[in-house]
Amino acid sequence: MKMQAERLKVIEPLPLPLHERLFDDGEHLAQALARQVAADLRGALARHGEACIALSGGNTPKRFFQALSTQTLDWARVTVLPIDERWLPPEHPRSNERLLREHLLQHNAVAARLLPLYRPTETPEAALMPVLTKIANEGLPLDVAVLGMGDDGHVASLFPDLGRDNPALREIGLQPRGRAPVMAIRTEAMPEPRMTLTLSAIFTAPALYLHIEGEKKRAVLDNAQRDPRNNLPIRSVLLGAPHPPTLYWSP
């Protein structure tokens, strides 16, 4: 009697947990995300009298910022801070502080308080301790954080080459329960040095959202969610978040 050859069963790894809200276009996404974030901020205001939100920069969130600025809530008790900042003065076109002032801090949200990361020093390293102290004392814990993602899988200013020459930097930036809420960043991927919140600071927010648009970025996210060999920063978000983030995505 011939023995049947044993077949090895390949077990595919389960994708990391992620709540998903999918939209046909960026405008509907922006409106829905604005309504949800406003509800989160109202809840935080009701619980402890003030609220703090950290927001990513770039072109993707502009419509969302504009929609959020028209939401009705007690903006005078809301603190807004950028998740990361290029080391450029706030009048520079690439400044995230400028982005927030022009697209969010208007209409109803004009009364919100902005807590910037930039200081007029030559380097972010020179301003690190004052910024770190300010954020720790006046910005944390967060109530809401909205992360974007680059085509290369970076989040905040935590890029794939983080820690290439100094592995401790990767540990600081991507540690889910670390002690450093802010760090100075230099990357070959971008021309300017930067200041960024670390994942340990971002993860203090009970409401954590990923705002991602486009098929290319969705493919990057899907790979990070499913492939255990993936070591992009976005996978560190999915692995380390204390509860599954909520994805808002449109083509």
Rank of each mutant, 00 (worst) to 15 (best):
T60H: 07
L142V: 06
H48K: 12
P206W: 02
T196P: 12
C52L: 04
L88D: 04
G153R: 10
L114E: 10
A51C: 01
H28Y: 05
L140H: 09
I185C: 13
F159V: 02
P141E: 02
E20W: 14
H154V: 10
P61Y: 00
P17D: 14
A205G: 13
A205Y: 08
A241R: 05
D222M: 10
V110D: 15
I202F: 12
P167Q: 15
P124E: 02
R218A: 04
A44M: 00
L247W: 00
M149R: 05
L88K: 04
L68W: 07
D40H: 01
W75Y: 04
R177L: 00
A168V: 13
G49W: 06
P245D: 09
E97P: 13
A67Q: 05
A184M: 04
N137S: 15
Y248Q: 00
P124H: 01
H48N: 13
P228A: 07
T121D: 06
R113Y: 12
G49T: 08
F159G: 05
I172Q: 00
P116F: 12
V80Q: 11
E27N: 15
A136P: 07
R101E: 12
G43W: 00
G57E: 01
P120Y: 08
Q66K: 11
T123F: 02
I11V: 14
S157Y: 07
G214I: 02
P160A: 13
K134R: 09
N166Q: 15
R101K: 13
L239Y: 00
A39L: 10
L99R: 00
E125Q: 11
V37H: 07
T60F: 06
S200R: 03
S200H: 08
E125G: 04
P245R: 07
E122N: 00
V131E: 11
Y209R: 10
I185L: 11
Q31F: 03
V144W: 02
Q71C: 01
W87D: 03
W87G: 04
Q71A: 02
R194K: 05
L128E: 09
N108V: 15
